[in-house]
C-alpha cells in the first residue's frame, strides 16, 4: 500500500531526535487519528541549520516526518514555510488517499516550529527577518504552495473545534 520511497524513509528515517537548545519547536496532534508529531529547528543566518523530529504515528507519519526534515535542511526560513503537505507527499512518490492527512501533520509541525521561532525572535526585538519572510511567502506566484498548505491546516483546525 505504501510506495517504495515511503517504506525507505519509514525503515530508515532521517533526523530522528530532539534538539535541546532548539530555536523553534512545533508540536501537532493529528485530529483524524490522534497521532502526535514534534519538530525541532535550529536556525543560522536565516537558514534551517538543523532539524529533528519525534513522531508517534503510522508508517506514513514517520516517512513524511523524515522527508520533511530532509526537504528543509539548509533551506531558508521562507523557503521552508512554502513546503506544504503536497510537497511532502509528492516527494515520497504519493501516499494512499486515506493517508494524505498524515502529511498535513509533518508540514504543520514544521510550520509551527518556524512560527515558534519567528514569535520568539519578534519577542526578543529582532524584527527584520520575520517581516521579510512574511512578504516573501505572500508573493504572488510563489505563495501558492504555502497558501495551499495553510488552507489545509486551516480546515484541519476547523474540524477539531
Amino acid at each position: 500500500m505504501y510506495s517504495e520511497k515511503v517504506m525507505e524513509h519509514f525503515t530508515n528515517p532521517r533526523n530522528v531526535g530532539e534538539i535541546p537548545d532548539a530555536d523553534g519547536v512545533g508540536q501537532v496532534g493529528n485530529p483524524v487519528c490522534g497521532d502526535i508529531m514534534r519538530m525541532y529547528i535550529k536556525v543560522r543566518r536565516g537558514r534551517i541549520a538543523d532539524i529533528k523530529f519525534k513522531t508517534f504515528g503510522c508508517g506514513a507519519a514517520i516517512a513524511t516526518s523524515s522527508m520533511v526534515t530532509e526537504l528543509v535542511k539548509g533551506k531558508s526560513v521562507a523557503e521552508a514555510l512554502e513546503i506544504s503537505n503536497r510537497t511532502v507527499a509528492e516527494a515520497l512518490g504519493g501516499l494512499p488517499p486515506h493517508k494524505m492527512h498524515c502529511s498535513n501533520l509533518a508540514a504543520d509541525a514544521l510550520h509551527r516550529a518556524i512560527q515558534d521561532y519567528l514569535g520568539k525572535k519578534k519577542a526578543s526585538g529582532a524584527e527584520g527577518r520575520g517581516a521579510r519572510v512574511g512578504t516573501r511567502a505572500g508573493r504572488p506566484g510563489r505563495g501558492g504552495a504555502a497558501k495551499q498548505g495553510r488552507r489545509w491546516s486551516g480546515r484541519r483546525t476547523g474540524a477539531q473545534t
Partner: peptide, 9 residues
C-alpha cells in the same frame, strides 16, 4: 494527546 495539539493549533 490531540488536546495538546489543539491548544498548539
Amino acid at each position: 494527546g490531540p488536546a495538546g495539539g489543539r491548544a498548539g493549533a
